[in-house]
């Protein structure tokens, strides 16, 4: 079974990710058996049909797709994927924060795509808690990416108080 990093551990995982191939359309693409992360377009086109399957729901947002599109249904999803088509495309960091901080999403947010060790720390801070590491990378080694820094300046999902609200009183070094 494929493995992912989830809650800072390597776990087996049976969620599939559906991506539309050339020529496939959201209206007609066959739905794989659950559990599956569906493209936003498929969710939007066939919402009622998908809900009727009475299986755990998953959807994934590409980097240009905002979480606004899921606002009304957010609590239906067990897993929401956020895609990084390239690791230098930073849009999904904002998507993840919005899912957590604006839409109050409490389920799993999974990083998909070009997911690499050196971005895991930022992803974690933005509320992503599961990582489908790029297949050619060593998952055991990548775990170290989650604990590169022991402290951070900004407020974010993992630490809602910025450092200036928490900074211990100390003499400058």
């Amino acid at each position: 079974m494929p493995r992912i990093i989830k809650n800072r551990q390597i776990v087996e995982d049976d969620w599939q990710v559906l991506a539309l191939a050339a020529g496939e359309t959201p209206d007609t693409v066959p739905l794989p058996a659950a559990p599956v992360l569906l493209p936003l377009s498929v969710w939007q086109a066939r919402r009622d049909e998908i809900i009727a399957r009475a299986a755990p729901l998953g959807v994934w947002l590409d980097s240009h797709e905002g979480p606004e599109a899921l606002a009304g249904d957010i609590d239906r999803f067990t897993v929401i994927g956020v895609n990084f088509p390239k690791f230098t495309d930073g849009r999904s960091y904002s998507s993840a924060r919005l899912l957590r901080e604006r839409y109050g999403y409490g389920g799993e947010i999974r990083a998909l795509g070009d997911v690499l060790q050196d971005q895991l720390f930022y992803m974690q801070r933005c509320g992503i808690d599961a990582y489908a590491l790029r297949a050619d990378k060593d998952m055991e080694k990548a775990l170290a990416g989650l604990s590169v820094f022991s402290e951070a300046y900004q407020a974010a999902v993992d630490q809602p108080q910025p450092l200036f609200q928490r900074r211990p009183v100390q003499e400058p070094t």
Binding site: G90, Y93, Y122, C126, F149, Y153, F164
Partner: peptide, 16 residues
Amino acid sequence: ELLRQWSTFHPEFAFL
């Protein structure tokens, strides 16, 4: 300095 700290490793804006 406030901005230096805020911008240092800002998790959301490292890949603008």
